[in-house]
């Protein structure tokens, strides 16, 4: 099926799942005493907020059929942003009831003291959701390690949904109607199934396809290339630019997993090695990854993502990397070189210092093997540096882009702020938006 049609179908399914409880409630309409309009809007918002929160897990449970239509990173972004919509619904819900004089303000503020459990559970659920979102949005500012964030995220999510469901059932109202209860029971089964698939079936599948560390090489700029070899299976076919989740915790059932772009060539024979590039930024990448010895067993869940030259054919490519964003672009370059692709490729590579340019020797070697031009840009140039200085901007791009640059495809990977800037700059230069692709991993 066409990817657009498939995406549209999944989108309609999602909307249906969120709104169906409301439809059933409206049809059942079990309330004897009519309530004010504002109260009903508030109640509906609560139901919608709970439904979105419950299905947040479905969005990130790596269901291949859905991920294929949108790309895992687009799904992650939707998950993140729709979570904010859920938060708004969840807080507007009691707020409207308070405004309509239907519930006391105290219930909404402090879920303690002489308050019915039905209300307490709702407020606690809202606080759990608020905490979860605050930790996600401000994880770095709060200096919360990624692995700890993963654990709290799952725990708070389960708490928020469970308390929300208890609140709804305890409150009665529409949830008193057998139809509404049946819908939620079906949702519970559906989400339970997804959870079993995610926590049990998926790791079991991975268990049969173990990998081992072949080499763990220190690179420039505080990065490491982790080369993995499949053990007893043909390995993984991926498209250059895609990513996978790496599990190094000793078992595929480990909670901790890290999304990483493949940085090796996609043109490897069955049984071939794959590589990831990992920059030291936290406890895992800074301490535990360097300690991974050859022979160490690890697991790879992938490939995922739609950020790939293989999906976007064009007469030439412009790759723009910021810092460790070079990883997926290296994979693209190695793949194109392995295929002896003759199309022109321009790589703009920005980094703080020349010494921190990961893979620069390799990139220079590639430029001699294929139709590749590399433009390095350093923020802190050393004495005698004659290349580009500062952030990659419109003027710098214009100095190096060939005449037909508007027909090329653009792949940008780096810090979020850089990608935002680059999208604006490229469209400003007249590159059609549909030809610019970004990969965003620093969402949390």
């Amino acid at each position: 099926m066409n990817l657009i049609v498939r995406g549209a179908v999944w989108f309609v399914v999602y909307l249906f799942l969120i709104l169906f409880p409301l439809v059933v409630a409206a049809v059942a309409d079990p309330l004897d005493v009519p309530r004010p309009f504002l109260v009903e809007v508030g109640v509906a918002l609560g139901a919608v907020g709970l439904a979105i929160t419950a299905f947040q897990f479905a969005l990130v449970s790596r269901t291949r059929a859905a991920a294929a239509a949108f790309g895992e990173d687009a799904l992650l972004q939707f998950h993140r942003q729709i979570g904010l919509v859920a938060l708004a619904c969840v807080w507007l819900h009691p707020l409207l009831l308070v405004v309509a004089d239907f519930a006391p303000l105290g219930w909404m503020i402090a879920p303690v003291g002489d308050i019915p459990w039905a209300a307490q559970s709702g407020t606690l659920s809202a606080y759990a959701l608020t905490g979860l979102i605050a930790l996600s949005v401000w994880r770095r500012r709060l200096r919360l390690a990624y692995e700890w964030w993963q654990a709290t995220h799952a725990l708070l999510a389960i708490t928020a949904v469970a308390l929300g469901a208890i609140h709804m059932l305890e409150m009665g109202g529409y949830a008193g109607a057998p139809g509404v209860r049946m819908v939620w029971a079906a949702y519970l089964v559906l989400l339970g199934g997804l959870a079993v698939n995610y926590r049990l079936v998926r790791p079991l599948r991975m268990l049969r396809r173990p990998w081992e560390v072949a080499r763990n090489v220190e690179e420039r700029g505080g990065a490491r290339t982790l080369v993995l070899r499949p053990v007893g299976h043909p390995g993984m076919a991926f498209q250059p630019g895609q990513f996978a989740w790496l599990i190094t915790g000793g078992t595929p059932f480990a909670l901790e997993q890290h999304p990483l772009s493949f940085s090796s060539s996609a043109e490897t024979p069955p049984g071939g090695e794959v590589a990831f590039t990992i920059k030291a930024v936290g406890d895992w990448s800074g301490t535990r990854v360097p300690a991974l010895q050859p022979g160490r067993r690890v697991w790879v869940d992938g490939p995922y993502g739609v950020f790939s030259v293989d999906r976007e054919e064009g007469p030439g490519y412009v790759l723009i990397a910021g810092g460790s964003g070079i990883a997926p672009l290296r994979s693209m370059l190695l793949t194109l070189a392995a295929r002896e692709d003759v199309r022109p490729v321009l790589l703009f590579y920005g980094n703080r210092r020349w010494e921190a340019m990961t893979y620069r020797e390799e990139l220079d070697a590639l430029a001699r093997r294929m139709n590749l031009t590399v433009v390095y840009a350093v923020e802190e140039p050393h004495p005698g540096w004659t290349g580009e200085v500062g952030y990659i901007d419109a003027a710098m791009l214009r100095r190096h882009l060939p005449k037909q640059f508007r027909r090329f495809r653009y792949f940008v990977c780096g810090p979020g702020a850089m990608m935002d800037a680059m999208e604006g700059i490229l469209t400003g230069l007249g590159v059609p938006r549909t030809q610019v692709f970004t990969e965003r991993f620093d969402m949390v």
């Binding site: 919608v48 939707f78 729709i82 938006r433 970004t438």
Partner: peptide
């Protein structure tokens, strides 16, 4: 550019859900 599209879709969904809640309330309020 897909992240711009995703943001638009989220706004669209938010508006749609808001409308659905309003319609629901209109439907069940006499």
């Amino acid at each position: 550019m897909h992240h711009v599209i995703v943001t638009r879709v989220v706004w669209f969904v938010a508006a749609l859900l808001g409308l659905a809640c309003t319609l629901f309330a209109m439907g069940v309020t006499p």
